[in-house]
Every structure is written in C-alpha cells, then in structure tokens.
Design a protein around this nucleic acid. Structure first.
Lengths: 136, 136
DNA sequence: TCTTGAAGCTATAGCTACTAGAGACATTAT
DNA sequence: ATAATGTCTCTAGTAGCTATAGCTTCAAGA
C-alpha cells in the first residue's frame, strides 16, 4: 500500500495532479486509511504510470481515457489503439511543420541589427504581415 | 470608423477575442456610438493587426504587451524587442526538438501489427516506459 | 505516552487565450 | 414600420493542471 506521496514519488506525477486524475475519473478512487487518507495498490501504481507516460507522449486526457479502456480488454482487436496513436502522430507532425515555419520567420526577423525601434525589423514585421516570407 | 464586426473581418480576429483584448488592456477602449457600440479608427485597426500577427507567430499576450509598448517608442533602442523575439525563437526550437522525439517514438509504436490488445505495442509501450527508445 | 513536524484532507480559485451562450438593445435594409 | 442582423454585458466553460487556506492524520523521537 502506498500513500499518495509515495505514489507521487514513484511515478513523478505531482500530488494535486493525482487527485485531479481521480476527479476526472482516469484513476479509480482508492481505498482509504482509517483517517481518510488515500491508500494505493500496485495496480493503482501501474495505471498511473501508464497515464504519466501517455501524457509525456502528448496524448490528451480524453485519448488516455480511451487507451486505458482498451488496455483493460486484452482480447479486443487493437485497431482502436492504433487509430488513436496514428491520429496523434499526425497532430504532432502538423505541429512540427507549423513550428518550423515559425522558426524560419523568427530567425529571419531577429537578424535585424538596427539601433532603434523605428528601423527595427522585429517591430516592423509584426506590424505588417506583408513583410513575411512564408504564410502562417 | 469601423464597427467591431468590420474590424473582426478585416483582421481575422473574432469579435469576442477583440473584446477580450480590450479587457486585457492590449488595445485601448475605443469610442462608442450613441447606442454604446464600439467604433474603431485606423489606428485601432493597425494595433489589432499587430497583435494578430504576433499571435500567429506564437508570441504570448504578455510578450505582445511588451512589443506593443516598444512599438510606441520608435526612438528607443530595439534591444528589448530583439531579446523578446530571440527568447521566443529559442522556445520554439525547444518545442520542435521535443516534438521530434515524440514523433519518432510514436512512429515506432504505431508500427505494431498485432491483432489484439494483449500483444499491441501501442498499449504495451504506454504501460512500460522501459520499452521506449528515446528519453522524454 | 506525548509531542512535533511532515504529510494529507477538502474546497476554492487561478493560470492561458480564448469561446459560447443568454437575454437585451442598436442599427440597417426593405 | 418591421424584420433581420449586429452588438451589448455578463457569466461560465475549455485543457490540464497548480496554488492556497485551514484543517486533520500519521510516524518517529524523547
């Protein structure tokens, strides 16, 4: 049996976040001690680790709810898990592409070496989209 | 003079967002019509365009507050504008790097071709961080 | 056994940057 | 004049937590 603090240390999920997950129904409400404190089992630990890891990979809480659900049913086809992951991969790739365009634009505008704001490319570019090289 | 709807169309910023910016102090409260509706000048239009464009480049509202401030003082050195932009560029690059690692990991785990959840690499990897190739 | 300090409890509010909705009033076109 | 559209304020909701207040419980040392 782990206290919430021990669970937190083992998984790296902060205490208020664990309680938040419980509230959101991602983890079951665990048993309580006589004094009403949460007591977790190994099962609770691995479920939370699953969540933690999924969050690190950027899955949304809703996605995780689905994945957790699937993981409880080992006999089911894993097609659903794949489509969640594949969709997420796509999202990540879209975000990368977008950020790359931003990076290019930011690199360009930070290269200005003017002395004052009047001639500054940063300010000027922000004021006038027409000065941008790429679309965004 | 533009109504809020016209301003919205010209800048691409949604009406509630314009009001939100006003509330946040990013744009000045404009004059009102006799019937209490907002009426904007060209100045208001260009200020909002500046904000819109900065948001598109991913600057935070706080950053934009600083940049707008600087843009009002053309005689000032533009060092501050540069450091805001440079810091933002750095953030963007960090995010790109992180997303690339995610992308790699997601690509790897979505390549599984198991039939059911019990053998599914997606689920398995999420449950056990040790199966990951890269750190995150 | 008593005490003390750390850890845990609930409930509420705050964060970013908006977005949505309700219900009332203003403006514009016909 | 009337109807359709636009705008007003206010409140609450979104994701995924984080922080605070004021209280109770637990575990270890004297």
């Amino acid at each position: 049996m782990f206290s919430i603090g021990q669970l937190s240390k083992r998984t790296g999920v902060k205490i208020p976040t664990i309680r938040y997950y419980e509230q959101m129904g991602l983890i079951d409400a665990p048993e309580r001690s006589e004094g009403n404190q949460r007591r977790y089992t190994k099962d609770g630990l691995s479920r939370l680790s699953f969540i933690r890891h999924s969050r690190e990979l950027g899955f949304s809480v809703e996605d995780i709810r689905g994945l957790l659900n699937l993981s409880q049913h080992p006999e089911k086809p894993c097609h659903d898990a794949h489509s969640i992951a594949a969709q997420h991969l796509k999202d990540v790739q879209t975000r990368i592409a977008k950020l790359r365009r931003l990076e290019r634009e930011l690199k360009r505008i930070t290269q200005c070496d003017a002395d004052n704001v009047a001639d500054c490319a940063v300010i000027e570019t922000l004021a006038d989209h027409g000065l941008c090289e790429t679309e965004h």
